[in-house]
Structure formats: structure tokens, C-alpha cells
Nucleic acid binder design. Structure first.
Lengths: 177, 177
DNA sequence: GCTAAATATGCAAATAATTGCATATGCAGG
DNA sequence: CCTGCATATGCAATTATTTGCATATTTAGC
């Protein structure tokens, strides 16, 4: 199970609560591995049982209590062991493309609408990633190893969105003919 | 559940057996939606119960019997209804990228090896897609709607592999410094 | 003062997906 | 002749994921 590994990797950064992990998942590793908060919370319990993380309850007077998780030495070892294994082919679930394959049975305007939505999403994300890039990686030359991994992830994100935009535009053009 | 829809869309082409669906899944829609044969067989039973497909047992003397599935009118309607709904954000599970985020804890050579494997995969697939393109869509101008959907899917496949190759090369370069 | 959003965690039920196994035959290569 | 691959379908058990619900507080906007 790889969700646990995605969580471990995120915890390398610093100790975090389930809630924080859920949010960071949406911006960093989350681009490559999505999970709902329910999944994250229950996975964290299992990981603590295994000893890959340790938990620390923090009582807060004003807000609900927090449980801060820290990666353990065993957790770091688990990451290293897992990293050396061959990765399974990435799993893909692209509904929009399946719908596109139904063109001929499904009317063009229906597909066109979906493509326009998708295009807008890509543009938003690209702007987002570019902002992060400008803020966090102004000069790409001088990066620590740790930063370099994240930098490259962001680079792929940017390339992916650019490709998505180009393709959506091509598809809309092709459909309008 | 969208696997059923992916199967329905594939059946638009022609009646097929579970085995054939499994194989075609690997080359066409399968680029956007993967499923194991067990999943496909059990899903087909459920779809037949719902009336979205009809089944036809064909006894074969020499080989195991086949069950040929045909999409029904109800199945076509189900596709149209589903196509008009907003698509959920594509689910992503990219282990390699999660591993990359662990750079600093995981040694560079480990990651480099993974990237090289990935690069080789991208190149193979790209060659594959280009072959299909040359064989099936020699002149992209004159396509029926049905073909156009598939053509665009292939175009995205090609763009995606190209992007993957460029990025892997950039990543390997960045890591070697 | 009311409403909504953000903070913070979790259970329970239902669905989906993976993994391991089982069966049976034909054909090609060594 | 033996091995492995392709054909062809499926059950059972486990694991992963989604969906719906539940609770409780703070802060910001109207």
C-alpha cells in the first residue's frame, strides 16, 4: 500500500497532523497521489501501530485537539526500502477521455463543454504552479537535494498543464470543424 | 462507477467478449482507464443484470466457450446520460513522483535508476502510438466523428509521452549535476 | 446576531480494486 | 516431449477507496 508511503514522504518535511497532511496533499505530493481525509486519518492509525510514525496529542484550549505525527527511524527505513522497488505502472482514471471515445454516440456540444471546463482547469493550475515556482524556486541552480525533488515535481506539473492546454485547444479546434 | 461506462464505450465499436475487452483496454481506452480481467468479468455480469448489455454464449469445440456481449439501447442511453455529467478530477497515483519527493532521504542513484526505466517506457509507448497513428490515421483531415474521438485520444497519448520523455531527460540532467 | 467557512478528527457502510488461485485447451519453439 | 504463451472465464479473500454521517469550536463576512 502506497498511501502510507506518500504520507511518510510528506512527514519528512516536518511533523504534522492529519489535517495538515490532508491540506499539503492538495498542493505538493497531492498532485501525484490523492486521498480523502478519511483515508488519511485511518491510514495514520495503522502506520502508528506499525511504528513508522509516532503520535503526540496536543490539547488546545480554544480549538479541537490535534494529533501531531512524527516519522520514526523505522519509517525512514521503510521509505528507503520501498523507493528501491520497481514502481507499478501509474494508475490512470481519465473519465473525460473515455467520454471522448464515445463521440458519435454522444453529441459534440456535450463533449465541447467538457473540454472547455478542462481547459479552464488546466489554465488555473498552471498559473498556480507558476506562482509557486516564482516564490519558492527563483533560482533553480542552487538547490539542496531535498528541494530538487520538489522542484522537479513542480516542473512536471507545469509541463503537464501546458500539454493539457495545448491538447484541449487542438481538440476544440478539431471538433469545431 | 465508471468502469462500466468505459466498457460500454468500448462495446460501441462492436460486440465483444470479456477477454477481447480486456485486451483492447490495453491499447485504446485502456490508456485512460485500466482494469484487470477479474474486474472486467465481474463488472460485465453486473451490467448484464442491469440490462445495459446482452450476452450470447458461443460454444466452441476447440477452445473454451466465449460469451459475447452486445450493448443495448438502454446501454446507449446510459452513456449519454453519464457523458453529460461533470467528470470528477482524474485520479492520479504516480509512485515515481512520490519517490522523487523523498530525494535527500533516498539516495540519488536509486532515483536515477527509476527515471531511466521510466524514460525507456515512455519511448516505447511513443513509438507504439506513432505506429498506430501512421496505420490508422494517415490523413487526419477526413475522419468520421467516431474516428475523431479516438484520433484525439491518440494525440493526447502522443503528447503525454513526449512530455514524459522531455521531463525525464530534464530530471536526469538536473540530478547528474 | 446569523451564516458560512475553516479547523480537527473520526466511524460505518458500501463499492471498487487487487491478489491468489483454479480450470482447460491449442500452438509454437527448443 | 516439455515449456511457456495465448485463449477464455471465473471465485474468494483481502485491501483500498468513496460516501454519508457525526461532533465541536473559531473567525470572518453580511
Amino acid at each position: 500500500m502506497a498511501l502510507s508511503h506518500a504520507l511518510l514522504v510528506t512527514l519528512l518535511d516536518k511533523p504534522q497532523t492529519g489535517y495538515e497532511l490532508g491540506k499539503r496533499f492538495d498542493r505538493t505530493v497531492g498532485f501525484f497521489w490523492r486521498a480523502s481525509h478519511q483515508q488519511i486519518y485511518s491510514e495514520l492509525h495503522r502506520m502508528a501501530d506499525k511504528g513508522h510514525i509516532s503520535s503526540n496529542k496536543v490539547a488546545q484550549a480554544d480549538r479541537p485537539n490535534r494529533i501531531v505525527y512524527t516519522i520514526t527511524e523505522a519509517g525512514r527505513e521503510a521509505i528507503q526500502h520501498w523507493a528501491a522497488l520497481d514502481s507499478p505502472a501509474p494508475s490512470v482514471k481519465e473519465e473525460l477521455l473515455v467520454k471522448l471515445f464515445a463521440l458519435g454516440t454522444v453529441e459534440k456540444p456535450v463533449i465541447t463543454r467538457l473540454l472547455e471546463n478542462r481547459l479552464a482547469q488546466h489554465r488555473e493550475r498552471l498559473a498556480d504552479y507558476r506562482r509557486v515556482m516564482a516564490e519558492h524556486y527563483p533560482q533553480a541552480e542552487k538547490l539542496s537535494d531535498r528541494q530538487r525533488g520538489r522542484y522537479l515535481g513542480l516542473r512536471l506539473g507545469i509541463r503537464t498543464e501546458e500539454t493539457g492546454i495545448d491538447w484541449c485547444e487542438e481538440a476544440l479546434q478539431t471538433l469545431s470543424k
